[in-house]
Amino acid sequence: MRHFRTIAVGGCFLAALVAGTMSDRPKASVSREIGGYHVLSADLHVHSFPISWSTLSAWDTVLEARHQGLDAIVMTPHNHVWVAKLGRWFSHIIGGPLVLVGEELTSSRYHMIAVGISTAVSSRQPAARAIDDVHRQGGIAIAAHPYAPFQPAYDAEAMQRLDGSEVVRPESQHDDRAASELREFFERSPRLAAIGATDYHGLGPLGYSRTYIFARERTEQGVIDAVRERRTVAYDRDGVYGDRDMLALASANGGLPHDAPDLPIFAGLAVFSRIAALIALSAAVLFNRW
């Protein structure tokens, strides 16, 4: 009886693994050249394990980004940069995608993405001074989820310095109030680059919300320069934000894909894999008398 249970549980788990691996097909990159620009699909707010509330390691995150057809990601550990540097090192070894070293500065007053930095910037200072520190390192600063409670931290001084703002996020594609708060903040200043980002913590698809970056070169510096010069486009559920010239250029050249990626909630093999795995693991726990 015991052997039968072991074989049944093992077989169920193996079937889940085979079905899941078969369902796990990589998505093609949509990267192409339009009007002298490299149009890169990027997610500019990505966390990884450890110490950033994420489940996937730096190397698994990089592999996941490639799997999702992303051309660039910004790895943004909370208040440090070493995990991002690990991700960039791994990306260099496997040949991409582009990984930019970043940081999410988290304080009780604001959260901010620093992109293209080499040492961590302190969040224990007013937003304007933190942005100055980011700029001194040659980086750019993006307001992360600037919802109402975080907006007062971005005073006039900070708004003059800020390079971009998250205007499309996964929750804003389902929640009208979230979408309107992000839009209201973004529209405060014409100087802000439009950013779509997932704020990835290992749940759901990386790149669910993304930014199209019109870079002059396919390099980390090319990405930074493009955001600094606001050559970005981000699609919402029923709208689009960003540089009108770049949008017109993209439209004249066949447009850009802008549907949110399919969620594998009810995709055949993936569903079978999940159900079989949940049964196998529950049975393993119960048969093992916990």
């Binding site: 788990f13 889940a16 693994l17 079905a19 899941g20 691996t21 369902s23 796990d24 394990f49 489940t55 996937l56 390691s57 190397w59 698994d60 592999l63 996941e64 290992g202 749940l203 759901g204 990386l206 969620l263 594998p264 909630i265 995709a267 093999l269 993936a270 894999s273 999940r274 079989a276 795995a277 693991l281 393993a284 726990v285």
Partner: peptide, 25 residues
């Protein structure tokens, strides 16, 4: 179980590439 959960939450399925790695760390 933890490695399998990580895989299912990230990719929606039990995939070899994530399960093996995530179980380790």
């Amino acid at each position: 179980v933890l490695g399998s959960m990580v895989s299912m939450l990230a990719s929606g399925a039990l995939t070899a590439r994530i399960v093996l790695s995530a179980t380790t760390y």
